[in-house]
């Protein structure tokens, strides 16, 4: 039972993992031009934030942060749906999934 009482590694390790995931997602958003991969990198960043929230929730023994993670998942699902349908519409109009295509909206 002693082993069940801790969350595996120390708090700093989980913080490190989630910051690393967030930075990887940010680098992906900045480098990739493919709209689908861009949306996936946003999902990766959202998951990094979720991991951090769950870590602190477990560390302080407070369940309210996990409710926020639940709402983040809800909003992420809605965001992915809308993003993908905008992508499909843009692809139909221009036959390209390059994010630079949206420069055409610039007047």
């Amino acid at each position: 039972m002693e082993q069940l009482n801790n969350i595996g590694a120390s708090l700093d390790f989980y913080i490190f993992v989630s910051i690393a995931l967030f930075s990887i997602g940010a680098i992906g958003v900045l480098t990739r031009k493919n709209m689908i991969v861009l949306l996936m990198c946003i999902e990766l960043m959202l998951n990094a934030v979720n991991l951090l929230l769950v870590t602190f929730s477990t560390f302080f023994g407070n369940g309210e942060a996990q409710i926020f993670v639940f709402f983040i998942i809800v909003v992420a699902a809605a965001e992915a749906t809308i993003g993908l349908s905008i992508l499909i519409m843009a692809y139909r109009n221009s036959k390209s999934i390059d994010i630079e295509m949206f420069n055409k909206l610039n007047g």
Partner: peptide, 16 residues
């Protein structure tokens, strides 16, 4: 990081 050194004891483990 300095605060959470070593193993982390969880005060209330059934929060989730």
């Amino acid at each position: 990081f300095q605060y959470g050194k070593g193993y982390v004891q969880v005060p209330v483990q059934d929060a989730g």
